[in-house]
Design a protein around this nucleic acid. Structure first.
Lengths: 208, 208
DNA sequence: ACAAATTTAGACAGTCTTGTCTAATTCGTC
DNA sequence: GACGAATTAGACAAGACTGTCTAAATTTGT
């Protein structure tokens, strides 16, 4: 395991203050001195870890965006699939869990570092996702007024049932991810889906 | 400031490993020995802090539930008001931010302690909120199939635009909270609201 | 095979922290 | 005011960690 990977693992488990350079060295299979050779000190090592994780997570997110259903065949199923991939490949995977935890635990201690993350991460991914939803709306598949709001709400809904697990740093099962995504996308489409006319809605409500 | 409050503040800022008993003592305005008299050691102090925060947050949440719009006059406005109160009094306030951060940073280190939190916190508050939505649905104000899912999604939507701020441990402004709640509730009602004639509402209100 | 660069193990000083101990001081209550 | 309980300041031992240093071993490139 590389130094950065080992450091990410230990910083995550123990926090910055609790992390032990000897433990990182042992986990990386190198001597302590080698770590000090590559990274001047503990703090430099930490910032290198965060930058690396941000970069890798971003790459994963944009790779997943490539599978966004721009021309949906089955809108609900396609969006559920996208939400599941997003969760599995970007949010619940090793890098995603590590980065989230480091931001949560040490974010306040390194304002400029995590400001950088904010600009490079959410600052770039949210608008990119919003653009996808805007395109879907423009193509007549959705009734979305504010694509930025819709994008944030889409992710919030897709993760709604995983919040407690995320809080405790756990890894949700595949089934939990699918459940949450399914419920989330259904609600999203009840709000923004275009299939049913107002009249049809009235009719359905009347029969209910 | 009480020992527990000072300890909560320092544990939050520095993490468990980084927290310094001398600093807690200074912040609490007592001597170190007094802390050791009241709480056997650092770990006991930490668990006391988490239990105290859980209790106080729960009290706040159930107090806020009392203002849930069971007989809404203006459903959208009432739900927005409820979401804002929930955020301001339970999630964004001092206790809420502290508890969330401690769970995020140290949750994995104390499985039984945070299992207890899970049972006492989300385990009691989610069903209580779900029951409110079930009652709203039963009274004909909402079209909700699964109240548990609706309750989780309601909170997820209300907080959708505060996620990044929460991640970094920040405190959203009143305006941000209002914005997020407004957008969230509007989407929630687009998904679960019943578009009912004014006459029908009047009728139901009269009969209630 | 050789030379340069890198890595390694271990020792080391300096600093910090926890938890204990003691003796003096303050507080609460009668 | 007096007496017991609680609090305080400070010293202290024991242990942990960071970052440096040195000399030996290993890898790398040619």
């Amino acid at each position: 395991m590389s130094i950065i990977d080992a450091a990410a693992s230990v910083f995550c488990r123990e926090g910055f203050a609790g992390a032990n350079i000897d433990l990182i060295a042992a986990e990386a299979g190198v001597s302590r001195q080698t770590i000090y050779n590559h990274h001047r000190d503990k703090e430099k090592l930490f910032t290198a870890v965060v930058r690396d994780l941000t970069e890798r997570c971003n790459a994963g997110i944009f790779a997943t965006f490539a599978s966004f259903p721009d021309q949906p065949r089955d809108l609900e199923g396609d969006l559920i699939g996208f939400a599941v991939r997003m969760n599995q490949n970007c949010i619940c995977n090793r890098d995603g869990r590590f980065l989230r935890k480091l931001i949560q635990t040490e974010g306040e201690r390194y304002p400029e570092l995590f400001g950088e993350w904010r600009d490079q991460g959410p600052g770039r991914t949210w608008p990119a996702l919003a653009a996808r939803f805007a395109r879907l709306a423009h193509a007549g598949h959705l009734a979305v007024d504010d694509p930025d709001v819709a994008a944030r709400q889409f992710l919030a809904l897709a993760n709604a049932e995983l919040q407690t697990t995320f809080m405790l740093g756990g890894m949700p099962s595949e089934d939990e991810v699918l459940q949450s995504a399914t419920h989330g996308v259904r609600t999203f489409l009840r709000a923004f889906g275009k299939r049913r006319s107002a009249a049809a809605v009235e009719k359905q409500l009347a029969s209910a």
